[in-house]
């Protein structure tokens, strides 16, 4: 019996937050499946299984009650987010290694949900990217550009990867980065993977994740500060260095907003409460710096997409941001902690 106040509690619960996040990924997953085939779905199904197993194992090793903690759905969220980020038709072991790194290393080694300094999905992603760069950059061509494998082939690709002979193709972000001779306009004409605003498929997937994010915002699962700051910073950077579409151009703001993991990152990764800054001002800073980093890494770095790296770097910085952005308490002149 709780003797002390408050005796009442609001309607929100952590499992509900997690379920809402899972639900909000659905439109994005549907669009990705439409454009890239069943690969993403197979990723998620297999990844989810591995995640629950890893979570159960970790809880058991740490002597925690299984049922209670599994019910917070956080492992499923991590798995879903990582599997969306992985290339479709990834082999089973790649997924398993990624999930195990995410759940065991990035999450439970640090003390479990709420104690992890790094976003587990992004940590798993980066570990894979560094260890298996070939598999991690093998993206299938989108519908209308290449042949889409069927469900059976997708399963085959995952579980008997040796027998699967998938076609891969450079992503629009790759093409844009490697370009050094063509005007952006010509680039667009010569490469079939470019669509209306950005990459074929990619642009719609980004819009779908944006829709999911907007729904979460509406449900007040998180606040607008971090994602909006990230998108704004990315837009600003792209606009500054767009260069009118010359061969040295980094790509237009619209191209960057609708390419790669931009929207997915903005609404499903940057908003991860555990690893971001906590105050309103802190979240603005945190999001904006991720947006700027994403652009810099995309255009100047060695990797095609940059959301994962940018997020991990800022995960590092989050505690400092918190320290310097402590809000002013009622009845105080200035913030108490930030000197």
């Amino acid at each position: 019996m709780r003797i002390t106040s408050p005796h009442a509690h609001g309607p929100m619960s952590t499992p509900r937050v997690m379920l809402n996040v899972l639900l909000a990924t659905v439109p994005g997953i549907v669009v990705m499946t439409h454009f890239f085939g069943f690969g993403t779905l197979v990723n998620i199904l297999w990844g989810g299984l591995v995640a629950v197993a890893c979570e159960a194992l970790a809880l058991k090793l740490r002597g925690r009650p299984l049922g209670f903690y599994l019910k917070d759905y956080s492992a499923l969220v991590t798995a879903t987010l990582l599997c969306i980020a992985l290339p479709p038709y990834s082999p089973w072991w790649l997924i398993a290694v990624g999930i195990a790194s995410a759940i065991l290393l990035a999450k439970h080694l640090y003390g479990g949900l709420g104690y992890n300094p790094f976003n587990p999905a992004m940590a798993g992603y980066v570990i894979l990217l560094i260890s298996f760069p070939v598999q991690m950059t093998a993206w299938a061509p989108p519908r209308g550009v290449g042949e889409l494998p069927g469900l059976l082939e997708a399963l085959q690709a995952c579980f008997t990867p040796a027998a699967f002979d998938g076609v891969t193709m450079a992503t629009p972000l790759d093409v844009m980065k490697q370009n050094n001779s063509l005007l952006v306009k010509d680039l667009w004409q010569q490469n079939p993977q470019f669509g209306r605003w950005a990459g074929v498929g990619w642009e719609w997937a980004n819009l779908a994740f944006l829709a999911g994010g907007a729904w979460l915002l509406y449900k007040r699962i998180f606040t607008w500060h971090a994602p909006v700051a990230m998108l704004a910073a990315l837009t600003l950077m792209a606009a500054l260095f767009n260069d009118g579409g010359s061969s040295a151009s980094g790509g237009s703001p619209l191209f960057h907003l609708l390419s790669g993991a931009t929207m997915f990152g903005a609404f499903f990764i940057v908003t991860d409460p555990v690893t971001s800054a906590v105050s309103v001002r802190g979240r603005l800073v945190y999001g904006a710096m991720i947006g700027a980093l994403v652009y810099i890494i995309r255009v100047r770095g060695n990797y095609p997409d940059a959301v994962a790296f940018a997020v991990l770097i800022m995960n590092f910085a989050a505690p400092f941001i918190d320290y310097y952005t402590q809000p002013r308490t009622y009845g105080h002149q200035r913030s108490g902690g930030g000197e």
């Binding site: 709780r2 949900l113 998180f222 409460p273 971001s276 105050s279």
Partner: peptide, 14 residues
């Protein structure tokens, strides 16, 4: 005013 369920981890949701 139901008895509250056991507390879960803080997810720093803010």
């Amino acid at each position: 005013l139901p008895t509250p369920p056991p507390a879960q981890a803080c997810i720093r949701c803010g």
